[in-house]
């Protein structure tokens, strides 16, 4: 549970002249070295510079979760991350979840449960769900965790836990019940 150092392979002297920098992001296992405007977010880097449009732009302000990706294994809103500040980060997007043409178990569960309608929030839901599974395993509590629960060890993901933990991912179609079921399937 001790926070780990945020030190990264790409860490180096940080002075950047002007308003652009060259940086390296490891996206889905591949290093990409890019020269980017400092204003460019990780989300726009993925979508506009790398053609990885799986992460979605729903609000661009961290209010909907459609842009959720995993950064060094933890879920984050990529719309609020400046790419320059993520130099050296390991980023996993929905495109990088399947391994050897086999879908990630949570992708399978979403299909099995039909846990999507328009599909626009889905990549963020799936990345967020994977983050939730990891966080629960690592003992991170949520607002739904009883204050009397043990402070170490994995948290069991019941429906109330999943609903609370997934509340950063809005779905306007109302696919929530099935999203919760899909994550529950993989958790158990």
């Amino acid at each position: 549970m001790e926070p780990t150092s945020r030190g990264r392979s790409g860490e180096g002297e940080g002075r950047a002249a002007g308003d652009r920098s060259t940086l390296t992001l490891n996206i889905n296992g591949t290093d990409h070295t890019l020269t980017l405007d400092h204003r460019t977010t990780v989300l726009d880097t993925l979508r506009l510079h790398l053609g990885l449009t799986g992460a979605k732009k729903g609000c661009d302000h961290g209010q909907c979760g459609a842009c959720t990706v995993l950064v060094d294994g933890r879920r984050a809103n990529s719309c609020l991350l400046l790419a320059v500040a993520q130099d050296g980060a390991r980023i996993t997007t929905v495109e990088g979840l399947a391994a050897d043409d086999r879908l990630h178990p949570l992708q399978e569960a979403f299909l099995e449960r039909d846990a999507l309608q328009c599909g626009y929030c889905t990549p963020g839901q799936i990345c967020s769900g994977i983050g939730v599974l990891g966080e629960a395993q690592d003992g991170f509590p949520s607002h739904a965790t009883a204050p009397t629960a043990p402070v170490t060890g994995p948290v069991a993901l019941d429906a109330a836990e999943i609903r609370e933990r997934m509340s950063g991912n809005l779905c306007r179609c109302g696919a929530y019940p099935r999203i919760v079921e899909a994550i529950g399937d993989v958790a158990s």
Binding site: R47, T53, L103, F110, L111, L116, Y120, T122
Partner: peptide, 10 residues
């Protein structure tokens, strides 16, 4: 699901 579906601004 895997991020391959292309929406209008993609």
């Amino acid at each position: 699901m895997t991020g391959v579906a292309r929406y209008a601004a993609e």
